[in-house]
């Protein structure tokens, strides 16, 4: 394999090498600002509705510590592996990138499986999106995050195909870097979900 050769060709911070790359990275940060507003609105909505259970199950009835702790751990770990992949990308190590990003994808998938499992369980207990305003807000906030993660999985898979095909170039590096930003952002959102939804749900 030719990873080591490529390392020589690739400059430091390859993602910032082209004008196009710099613009896209900056543009993505602006996009993330809009995402922050989007999630803030959803969090605000959740906090407004969190006690409107309309006689249905409450947060305390539903949430289980073991489950959401596991989800949190998996997602946090995936952020770490994603960071390692970016590091490998800057070192020009294609194999490292593929390995760590692949692991990130697996962890992301694991998270999604757990989350969907959690939803199925709740629905089985009669807690659906139509049960109460609290559950509407809960499902919408969590699935917005979940859909983001799923799209992230699709996106990163697509990027890995491109890395395999084209190697690490300024363009593929930029793409990986931006996908990495996205992934870390979703992790940060999850930390707020963990706090605002699960922890406060347990104590209330």
């Amino acid at each position: 394999m030719a990873e080591l050769d490529q390392k020589v060709n690739l400059p430091d911070f390859p993602e910032y090498q082209t004008e196009d790359g710099r613009l896209k990275i900056f543009g993505f940060w602006v996009f993330l600002a809009a995402e922050v507003v989007l999630f803030s609105t959803l969090f605000a909505t959740y906090l407004v509705f969190k006690d409107q259970t309309a006689g249905g199950p409450t947060a305390k009835d539903l949430f289980e510590v073991k489950e959401f702790m596991a989800e949190t751990l998996i997602l946090l770990t995936s952020s770490f592996t994603c960071g390692l992949a970016t590091l490998k990308m800057r070192l020009g190590q294609k194999k490292g990138v593929l390995m760590w990003m692949g692991l990130t994808l697996l962890l992301g998938l694991g998270f999604m499986v757990m989350e969907i499992g959690e939803f199925i369980k709740y629905v089985g207990e009669g807690a659906t999106i139509g049960t109460s305003a609290f559950l509407s807000a809960f499902y919408v906030l969590l699935s917005t995050h979940g859909v983001h993660v799923s799209l992230g999985i699709l996106w990163v898979s697509l990027l890995l195909i491109q890395v395999v095909k084209r190697g690490l170039t300024p363009i593929t590096s930029r793409k990986l870097f931006i996908a990495g930003l996205y992934w870390h952002f979703l992790d940060v959102v999850w930390i707020f979900v963990f706090t605002a939804v699960y922890l406060t749900g347990l104590v209330s």
Binding site: F49, Q52, T131, A133
Partner: peptide, 13 residues
Amino acid sequence: LGAHFFTIDGGGM
């Protein structure tokens, strides 16, 4: 989907 964000019933506002 029958959610209850803005309905009169179900705790919506």
